[in-house]
């Protein structure tokens, strides 16, 4: 027997359990374990004398009076079975509401995308060989704020036929040099003769970075 084994036994010891004979030899030689055991026995005795706390006079009356004052806030009793049923019903309702929301939002986005496409198509817009459904629709759904700003720029005096490229205006993109050769400065668009769409079809990844900048409006180049 050693200290570790004795301590393991102490940790699992039932209260008032006596010392097993197998530890007697170890305790006779080990001062630390002997002291620990002495403390345990003493604790047993203290616990056996541990008195309950005295009751507080008129405590019950005070609590009942307090309850009477606030009876209207007592919550109704709900049995566990009923609570489970309520929880299930809540989960089902939540799922249905989520589905309806997804359907409504999805439909709205599709509709906006379709309307935007129709509007641009009616102006003769083309998308430089890119797939409208996967690119422009998604762009317009996510950058409606930019589109609003774009409209403002377009209304500053430039005729649609003069606009060779409509830049994607992201946040405060004003002043940023674009790869396409456009420089956006304030509310006006300055174009350079090289401001054309790249000849090669961009990859999908670069398309999303560049998409707003290559929405082409037909009707000729800058005059």
């Amino acid at each position: 027997m050693n200290c570790t084994e004795f301590e393991a036994w102490l940790a699992d010891r039932e209260m008032t359990a006596g010392l097993p004979a197998r530890f007697e030899g170890h305790l006779a030689d080990c001062e630390a374990c002997r002291t620990a055991w002495r403390g345990e026995r003493l604790l047993d005795r203290a616990l056996s004398q541990w008195p309950p706390v005295d009751a507080v006079p008129d405590f019950r009356d005070r609590v009942v009076a307090e309850l009477s004052r606030s009876t209207h806030t007592v919550q109704p009793f709900v049995s566990p079975q009923r609570r489970i049923r309520s929880t299930r019903w809540l989960a089902v309702s939540g799922s249905l509401v989520s589905l309806v929301l997804v359907a409504v939002i999805g439909g709205r986005l599709s509709f906006d995308s379709y309307m935007s496409r129709q509007a641009l198509d009616s102006n003769g817009a083309v998308a430089n060989e890119m797939n409208w459904d996967t690119a422009v629709g998604e762009l317009l759904a996510t950058v409606q704020g930019d589109y609003q700003q774009l409209t403002t720029v377009a209304s500053t005096g430039l005729r649609p036929s003069e606009i060779v490229a409509l830049p994607r205006l992201v946040d405060s993109a004003v002043g940023r040099e674009l790869d396409s050769g456009l420089a956006i400065t304030g509310p006006t668009l300055e174009t350079t003769p090289e401001a054309t769409v790249p000849a090669s079809r961009p990859s999908l990844r670069s398309a999303f970075g560049f998409l707003g900048e290559v929405v082409m409006v037909s009707g000729g180049g800058a005059s």
Binding site: L10, L19, E24, R38, G39, R41, L42, L43, D44, A46
Partner: peptide
């Protein structure tokens, strides 16, 4: 629970509640 018991027991011994003669060793 074990640590609490150990701590209390050590305090009881440290405060001299038990005699060092070891008369608590094998029984109450």
């Amino acid at each position: 629970l074990y640590r609490a018991r150990k701590e209390i027991a050590r305090k009881l011994v440290d405060r001299g509640v038990v005699s060092e003669a070891g008369d608590e060793l094998y029984g109450i």
